[in-house]
Nucleic acid binder design. Structure first.
Length: 492
RNA sequence: GGCCCCCUCGUCUAGUCAGGCCUAGGACACCAGGUUUUCAUCCUGGCGACAGGGGUUCAAAUCCCCUGGGGGUCACCA
């Protein structure tokens, strides 16, 4: 019981980091950290046709970006290297031969065509498709001779009679009759080992003690358990995490929206928000606290508290949480996080961002409580960079402004007055402007609405006088003049 | 269809293991109000669930059984 905890994740390098992989990784990582164990990352590239080096890099980078640090892996090495399954095939094949020699596996010479036929017949008869064990009882000597002669074969696991029962760490006792388990293929034609086989070899060799993975693997467990038994090895503990679901209640997939971690990074979701939200998929800190740190999560994480049922991924709540974390950042952090988006939108260059750092920080500070994602900043501050006589007016902003009496006249009068004012102190300018409105015998909205529209074109936004200071006297004068002119003519 | 897993507000969940503290708590969303020059933030309030049916018990969201519903999986993918 005192053996050190060792957990692992084994992604196959066939794409980018899926949210499901990110969540599974996070739970494994938290479990290891909570119990002072070791977290291993192993690349599952047994499918050589689909695995790519680019994908492996993408996965390592994505997981690394999240800050989920693995203690052993293909990049950092470790006592059980190599951590890439393609580099362990020799070992796999040796184990396969050992199993074959012991009678736990047998050569199958059935062609893919024959298997397809058998499957079709079974389906026609409404039966569960499975291997008919055609080669199971072939004479070993004959099988060896045929193999020797060069006939292609696969190696199948000889499933024994009996039953598999195990204590799932999340679900409790699970029982499956062996007759339900197919004589599955361990080694393909061409001596390439398959997932269910190598996963056991490697987990055993790497002394993995706990396997935490998605529920889709639940039915694979008996196959693997039987293999441990045939190998006379003690199996690890298994825990099957609930699935993350789309709106249709099925496994989250591309058609549900973005499911790649990269997409959320690109959209500007704060890292902590992604981490925190992923934790909430199948786990809760205390049922009350929604926003919490990874340190809190690690301190409280227990597989007993993982829910059994799948959870529909709530994109809206995810968006909300992004805002929670974005607002927690310092203005400097936020400004830096938004910088690439501002540049990408063509608003400022990286050089300009550095030159006008103070100005940019003030602009960002004004928008912090109005955005939830880093990528939302450009649209909010675009007006600063537009030509003074061609500011884009939101229809709602214009409509609201035109309802306030003689917008054009008010703006002209205000322009004349404000040209003599000091445009460096927002608070003072605001007070003076309100006093001016009173002197004119007008109501506050009569000035503020047209003013906001002329200056920003937006229906809402930060304090108007902060905006005026950030815009500067010339821009303010030019925009008031252009605004008055536009309000002077009826809208098209 | 076979096998396996699951089932508390629309959604994520607390409570279920050790039945009473639950006229079921929190959050997102939604609605209403307050604050604000506007928007946003923030604050207050509201809406809203134990899948159904039996049983055990003084007492069941919690234990047992059945029904229903949902999902996963049935590859020389992982």
């Amino acid at each position: 019981m005192t053996e050190p905890i060792r957990v692992r994740i084994a992604p196959s390098p066939t794409g980018t980091v899926h949210l499901g992989l990110a969540r599974t990784s996070l739970f494994n990582w938290a479990y290891a950290r909570r119990l002072g164990g070791t977290f291993v990352l192993r690349i599952e590239d047994t499918d050589r046709t689909r695995s790519t080096a680019e994908s492996e890099t993408a996965i390592l980078e994505g997981l690394g970006w999240l800050g989920i640090q693995w203690d052993e892996g293909p990049d950092v090495g470790g006592p059980h290297a190599p951590y890439r399954q393609s580099e362990r095939v020799e070992r796999h094949l040796a184990v396969a031969e050992q199993l074959r020699a012991a009678g736990h596996a047998y050569r199958c010479f059935c062609s893919a065509e024959r298997l397809e036929e058998v499957r079709a017949e079974q389906q026609a008869r409404q039966e569960t498709p499975r291997y008919d064990r055609h080669c199971r009882d072939l004479d070993p000597a004959e099988a060896a001779a045929r193999a020797e002669a060069g006939e292609a074969f696969t190696l199948r696991f000889r499933v024994p009679e009996g039953v598999c029962t195990f204590q799932d760490l999340v679900r409790g006792e699970v029982t499956i009759q062996n007759v339900e388990v197919d004589d599955w293929i361990m080694v393909r034609q061409g001596a390439s080992p398959t997932y269910n086989f190598v996963v056991v070899c490697d987990d055993a060799d790497m002394q993995i003690t706990h396997v935490l993975r998605g529920e889709e693997h639940l039915v694979n467990t008996p196959k693997q358990l039987l293999l441990y038994r045939a190998l006379d090895l003690a199996p690890p503990q298994f825990g099957h995490l609930p699935l993350m679901l789309g709106q249709n209640r099925k496994k989250l997939s591309k058609r549900d929206g973005s499911v790649s971690l990269d997409d959320y990074i690109a959209l500007g979701y704060p890292k902590k928000a992604i981490l925190n939200f992923l934790c909430l998929q199948g786990w809760a800190l205390d049922g009350e606290t929604e926003v919490f740190s990874m340190a809190q999560m690690v301190a409280a994480f227990d597989l007993k508290d993982v829910s059994k049922g799948g959870s529909i991924f709530d994109f809206e709540k995810f968006h909300w949480m992004a805002g929670e974390y974005l607002r927690e950042e310092s203005v400097e952090e936020l400004a830096d996080h938004c910088a690439s988006h501002v540049v990408a939108a063509g608003l400022m260059t990286a050089d300009e961002l550095a030159e006008r750092r103070e100005w940019y920080l003030r602009v960002v500070a004004q928008e912090q409580e109005r955005i939830r994602l880093y990528s939302e900043l450009p649209a909010r501050i675009r007006f600063y960079f537009e030509a003074h006589d061609a500011v884009t007016w939101d229809p709602k902003a214009e409509k609201g402004a035109r309802k306030r009496g003689d917008a054009a006249g008010t703006l002209r009068d205000y322009a004349a007055w404000v040209s003599g004012q000091d445009l460096s102190n927002p608070a003072a300018l605001g007070e003076a402007s309100k006093a001016w409105v009173g002197e004119q015998g007008k109501q506050i909205p009569e000035l503020f609405q047209p003013l906001r529209c002329a200056l920003t074109g937006l229906p809402g936004g930060p304090d108007l006088f902060e905006v005026m200071v950030l815009l500067g006297p010339e821009a303010v004068a030019a925009r008031l003049r252009a605004g008055a002119a536009r309000f002077g003519v009826e809208p098209a």
